[in-house]
Amino acid sequence: MTVSASVTIDVVSDVVCPWCFIGSRRLDKAIAAAGDVEVHVTWRPFQLDPTIPAQGVDRRDYMLGKFGDEGRIREIHARIEPLGVAEGIAFDFDAITVSPNTLDAHRVIRWAAANGEEVQGRLMRRLFSLYFEQGRNIGDHAVLIAAAREAGMDEAVVEALLPTDADAEAVRNEIATASKMGVTGVPCFLLERRYAVMGAQETDTLADAIRQVAAAKAKGELDSAD
């Protein structure tokens, strides 16, 4: 009889990272492909650019400032779009008009975890879709409140907390901890908080990592590891 074990995965990501959206779809497929391994996923915060002001900035100006010219931007988008199609993602980069600061989004994602991993997962998927497929401003409180409601959270609680600084420092501390652990880019998949899989790896790579860690855990090898 095959011995299996549950595996925890902490996904360090930012909701304005297209590779994180792709990685989330590949992770879903990897979990399905991992057989009878029970996988528990928690989404952890990261900010690709915490210097963006709270109200966000014009997307086109921001991208031009970062990459220099329209041709370079189109080249980047053209590379990402077919990868998205393969994962069932309809990237619409032209629809995005605001580059948001994602601190508030990460606060709501943190609160979602208190409602269970399924609710947090639904919220992440919704925010990715709103931003990349619909061009919505996920720094806007009204957009975040609606997304929270759609994910199954208490809308009134989110509406009351968002205008405050609740958990802002906690999110920043989590991001700082990830940086101290060596996370410099996202997505980063931390299995059992011991093994890191960096980047939007292929589904098979993620599934293999899940199976290997589950097997090692079932044999007690993780407990004896240095």
Rank of each mutant, 00 (worst) to 15 (best):
N173W: 13
Q212W: 08
Q55F: 04
V16S: 06
D49G: 12
V183S: 05
S99D: 00
P45A: 14
D49N: 15
F189I: 15
V15S: 01
Q134E: 12
R74K: 08
R74N: 08
D92R: 10
R44C: 02
L162E: 08
I9H: 01
I175V: 15
R211Q: 11
V98G: 09
F46L: 01
A30N: 13
D61V: 03
A176D: 11
G135M: 13
A160V: 05
M153W: 09
S179I: 01
A105G: 11
A200N: 08
E192K: 01
A95Y: 13
G199A: 01
E133S: 05
A216N: 03
D94T: 09
K217C: 02
I76P: 04
V98M: 10
V98A: 05
A200H: 10
E81W: 02
A114Q: 10
R60Y: 14
L190Q: 03
P187L: 02
A156G: 14
F132T: 08
V171W: 15
V98L: 08
A86I: 02
M63I: 08
R26V: 08
R79P: 10
D14Y: 14
G152P: 00
D61N: 09
Q201D: 03
I31W: 04
H77W: 12
A54N: 05
S129L: 02
D69R: 15
I109Q: 05
R25E: 04
E81V: 15
R44Q: 15
A200M: 00
I175G: 00
R44I: 00
I80A: 14
R72M: 00
L48F: 14
D167V: 01
T51M: 02
H106A: 04
I31E: 01
H141A: 11
H40P: 09
A54R: 13
I80M: 13
G152S: 12
I76R: 14
K29E: 13
V15E: 07
R172W: 15
L27I: 02
A176H: 13
R149Q: 01
E75Q: 11
R122K: 10
L162F: 11
R60L: 03
D154Y: 08
A114R: 15
L130C: 04
A218F: 07
K66C: 05
E87V: 07
L162T: 10
F128M: 10
L130G: 11
V183K: 08
V183T: 07
V39L: 00
A209L: 05
Q212S: 12
A178W: 09
E150W: 01
W19N: 06
V171A: 09
V183Y: 02
K29H: 06
A196W: 07
V108P: 02
K29W: 05
D10L: 10
P45Y: 05
A168Q: 12
A209Q: 07
A178F: 14
I73A: 12
P100L: 00
